[in-house]
Simulated assay, not measured.
Amino acid sequence: MKLVILDTGCSNISSVKWAIQRIGCCSCVSCDPDMIICADKLILPGVGTANTIMNHLNKNSLTDVIKSFKKPILGICLGMQILGSYSDENGGVSTLGIIDKSIELMNSDNLPIPHTGWNKVIFFSKNYLFNNIKNESYFYFMHSYAMPVNNYTISQCYYGYYFSAAIQKNNFFGVQFHPERSHKVGRQLLKNFLEM
């Protein structure tokens, strides 16, 4: 299997690569469109801003490559957020538009922002991404923006209000939490994705 971790121009790429390596899978980090087109699976990591990642994707002619990718894709944190249509962050930026929902500053009911730490994830339905993971398991979050719950939400989390913790539309998967920092449950989720 050829697994590519997209070089998004953001941080956290090394953490994802090491987490994949601990599962026993090889991966490469690239922003070369030809290499991405040939991948069997693609991971979109990201800790940073929507503007940074979208500028990087546009500069490297990757937006259409990602949108037309037919094999499994997993967006992590900011990598999930760019699957939406628009982000309100830093004055606003158009994103990939896979899912027709905007990413909004969290309405956390006076709780601290960013939302940082362990929180419970509630599954909406059985999904292979959560195979061998108990419902209401705790995952590690670190974010200030989130996607509202919508028709493509497969799990949600509560932090002053409910938001999408994971989404799926066709071959596009996204998780707002960080599986690479979520110990056993995170390792199982990454393993599930790699085995799709």
Score class of each variant (00 low, 15 high):
residue 92 G to W: 11
residue 3 L to T: 00
residue 2 K to G: 06
residue 10 C to N: 08
residue 82 I to T: 01
residue 37 I to C: 04
residue 81 Q to H: 03
residue 110 N to W: 01
residue 173 F to T: 09
residue 70 K to L: 11
residue 117 G to K: 09
residue 57 L to N: 06
residue 99 I to Q: 03
residue 38 C to W: 03
residue 57 L to Q: 11
residue 176 Q to D: 13
residue 167 I to G: 00
residue 59 K to N: 09
residue 171 N to C: 10
residue 147 M to G: 14
residue 107 N to I: 02
residue 181 R to K: 08
residue 81 Q to S: 12
residue 112 P to T: 03
residue 27 S to F: 00
residue 195 E to A: 06
residue 191 K to T: 13
residue 153 T to W: 12
residue 21 Q to M: 04
residue 166 A to K: 09
residue 114 P to W: 13
residue 33 P to W: 02
residue 44 L to N: 05
residue 66 I to F: 01
residue 117 G to C: 07
residue 152 Y to C: 14
residue 109 D to H: 10
residue 133 I to L: 15
residue 43 I to Q: 04
residue 70 K to I: 03
residue 164 S to T: 08
residue 150 N to E: 08
residue 8 T to W: 09
residue 11 S to P: 03
residue 66 I to C: 09
residue 119 N to Q: 01
residue 137 S to P: 05
residue 123 F to C: 05
residue 62 L to T: 06
residue 24 G to C: 14
residue 184 K to F: 13
residue 189 L to K: 12
residue 16 V to N: 02
residue 131 N to C: 06
residue 28 C to Q: 11
residue 34 D to L: 05
residue 177 F to V: 13
residue 156 Q to V: 13
residue 5 I to A: 01
residue 30 S to H: 01
residue 144 S to D: 03
residue 70 K to G: 11
residue 20 I to Y: 01
residue 193 F to S: 11
residue 74 L to I: 02
residue 180 E to C: 06
residue 170 N to Q: 14
residue 176 Q to F: 00
